[in-house]
């Protein structure tokens, strides 16, 4: 019983980070109808920047973290302005191809500057595990979870109640109509990319604190893709629920199935679930698929 709970709790923490990175995908998909395949690189770069600030420049973690967020927002906006703005009326496939190119470019830069070695964060969170009955949680997991939940709540409130959130939802719904009411679609794109890059940075810093940073971190972009599809590409709630779901299932697989069936199943299982769910619900768990009047 203790083992099961332990696995579920680890799954929830990893899943919360998936949810956050998936949020970045969903924001961009909703605004421009394209998948940002460079999302994993945003995560990687965010993680490296914070690490450099903390380890090399000796800036206290909390300030380094905030500086990283600022840096990543700017990075996201610059990418939008330089790479995606010229493609605003282009077919979706062109936009996706551009993001693939972008991912190679950003990954290349990251390797040039930081190399391939795994680097670890200096201990930021206390290392004595917290004990709750039979279950042991390390503080870094607990803190990650808390930070993610705060971010998700903030974004939820922003979307539901702010003027900017309303504009973002309006653009996601109908771009032409959004322009007609005076919403600047260009500005909404710019801000969306900034946000997407910001949540990626948070994910990167948290993952870096848990596992250390190396070039393979960018593959989280790929791991999160099934999460996004499972939740329904355009649903923020879906991304969050699916993030937790995939995190938990992955960890349970690692705990119970891998000892029997062999290692590596953990990496495959999200894709298997997605395939199964899409057979039953083609728009994902929470995807819109269009409102039909009867």
């Amino acid at each position: 019983m203790g083992f099961l709970l332990q696995m579920i709790i680890t799954g929830v923490v990893v899943g919360s980070i998936y949810a956050l990175v998936a949020l970045g995908f969903v924001l961009i998909y909703r605004a421009s109808g394209a998948l940002n395949l460079a999302n994993g690189e945003f995560v990687l770069i965010g993680s490296y920047i914070c690490l450099t600030l903390v380890a090399v420049y000796q800036i206290p973690f909390i300030f380094a973290f905030l500086l990283t967020l600022v840096f990543n927002v700017l990075l996201g906006m610059i990418v939008e302005r330089v790479v995606l703005r010229p493609l605003i009326n282009a077919p979706t496939i062109s936009v996706i191809m551009a993001t693939i190119g972008l991912s190679s470019l950003l990954a290349g830069f990251a390797h040039m500057i930081w190399g391939y070695q795994t680097q670890s964060y200096p201990p930021v969170f206390p290392s004595t595990p917290i004990r709750m009955g039979e279950i042991i949680i390390s503080p870094v997991y607990l803190w990650s979870f808390i930070i993610v939940i705060i971010m998700l709540i903030l974004f939820g409130l922003l979307f539901k109640y702010s003027k900017l959130g309303l504009a973002m939802r309006a653009v996601a719904d109908d771009q032409m109509a959004a322009s007609s009411v005076g919403i600047s679609v260009k500005n909404v794109y710019l801000i969306t990319w900034g946000f997407a890059s910001l949540v990626a940075a948070v994910g990167g810093v948290l993952l870096g604190n848990i596992n250390g940073v190396d070039a393979t971190m960018a593959t989280i972009g790929l791991t999160v893709l099934p999460v996004v599809i499972l939740g329904g590409l355009d649903s923020i709630l879906g991304a969050i629920v699916a993030g937790f779901l995939v995190g938990i299932i992955q960890n349970l697989t690692a705990g119970y199935l891998e000892p029997i069936l062999g290692g590596g199943l953990k990496e495959v299982i999200p894709f298997i679930i997605v395939t199964l769910i899409l057979m039953i619900k083609p728009h994902g768990l929470f995807g819109k698929g269009g409102i039909e009047r009867v």
Binding site: K163, L166, A167, R169, A170, A172, D173, D174, M176, A177, A178, S180, V181, G182, I183, K288, I291
Partner: peptide, 19 residues
């Protein structure tokens, strides 16, 4: 018409006041 189909009626009206 092109109303924002996934927004409520009141939210649609608010988008009109965006500027």
């Amino acid at each position: 018409r092109r109303v924002f189909t996934h927004l409520t009626v009141e939210e649609n009206l608010l988008t009109g006041a965006y500027t």
